[in-house]
Design a protein around this nucleic acid. Structure first.
Lengths: 204, 204
DNA sequence: GGTGTAAAGTTTACAATGTAAACATTGCAC
DNA sequence: GTGCAATGTTTACATTGTAAACTTTACACC
């Protein structure tokens, strides 16, 4: 992050690994998973087609790195939602859902890569960054319980319910199975989430 | 469907298209999406590597056909869940969720293919078979409303909520983000779904 | 019954891709 | 300074998707 100094026509790139991941993300957004090619990615980083092998064991490793980057972005996004509503746990939960969907709809191919194929892989690093995203939600749930907004009980399980619903909704929204009317995205997610929160509220 | 008669060493295969899809499904289960290759699929059907082109415009078309087959199986599975509990709409909803998860956990790569990449494709036939699956749930929701088990209101939206939750849960279950205790799958889904149903119940 | 045509399959060819191996360059530790 | 390890490059090759030209076969029609 601090070696952006070297750039012009040096034999060594400086931060090729990072550049390759970013090139991959760009391709992913523009043309889908199938368009990610080691050679194209190398080309975009202005490097020979075999150079990526100095940083990734194989194509799969690059894809995993791209997925990781996605989870890191997602974590930042979700955390931003939390910070937006200090001391309002209920709003935090709704905002997390909204930001999650925004991310998923803005980057559908990235989300697909993150949760399809890659997460099924047995990669510890990937699962760790994925868990970091999950923990943002989990913490918000815990705070909501402490604030008396959600009933006591297995917070991890409640967080899983919410994540499931929001993730599923995001996927459906990416297809044509869930057509909303003209409503705003924010109202849409929040409406759905509130149905669930009602079942999770205190003194139900 | 009725020309299973011709089989042994005839130049014409008889039902190659179908055989190719099945071969693809087998590969998908065994080795994941990346292992699906036109040539391997052709090989399994004992046919030359270019033969698939008489039935599919390109590899993408084969993948879509495989995804379609997945939705058809899913529809059958869900419908079986409904038939299991005639005149108990609430049990029908829970059973649909359970069967959905069973399918997704038994065939994770297939589910990934169906909802990733493929559904983002603009393919009308695929979206139709996907909608057929969705409609099984939608009908069950409608019946539950008529039976007074769910509150009146936008049934499509309620079905979307449930589908989202169950689908999301299935995806998480395929990763390591949602670790349940030793409990049965059935209890697990139903517990989650009941949280939601509570929010959707009449006179909430 | 013969035949000719379209559907279904095969062969050959080629470009794109992932990957291995051998070679080149360069920054940095000593 | 110099030598080595890290980082890139070149060359080579097997796999794959796909196009084109050719072959076989079922079946409609006379």
């Amino acid at each position: 992050m601090d070696n952006a100094a070297e750039s012009l026509t040096s034999y060594h790139h400086g931060d090729l690994r990072h550049a390759l991941v970013e090139a991959g993300v760009t391709l992913l957004q523009a043309e889908g998973i199938g368009a990610i090619t080691l050679r194209k990615v190398a080309g975009r980083a202005k490097v020979s087609h075999a150079a990526p092998y100095r940083h990734f064991a194989d194509k799969q490793a690059l894809l995993i790195a791209i997925a990781e980057q996605g989870f890191q972005k997602l974590t930042v996004t979700m955390q931003a939602a939390v910070n937006q509503y200090t001391d309002n746990p209920r709003q935090q939960l709704l905002a997390i859902g909204e930001h999650y969907m925004q991310f998923g709809i803005a980057h559908p191919a990235h989300l697909t890569l993150m949760f399809g194929e890659m997460l099924q892989q047995e990669d510890d690093v990937l699962h760790e960054v994925a868990r970091a995203s999950f923990d943002v939600l989990l913490n918000a749930v815990t705070r909501a319980q402490q604030a008396g907004i959600l009933k006591a009980g297995d917070s991890r399980q409640m967080a899983t319910s919410m994540w499931s619903m929001v993730h599923g909704l995001t996927v459906l929204k990416g297809s044509r199975l869930a057509e909303q009317g003209g409503g705003e995205l924010k109202e849409y997610v929040e409406g759905m989430l509130e149905q669930l929160l009602e079942g999770l509220a205190t003194s139900s």
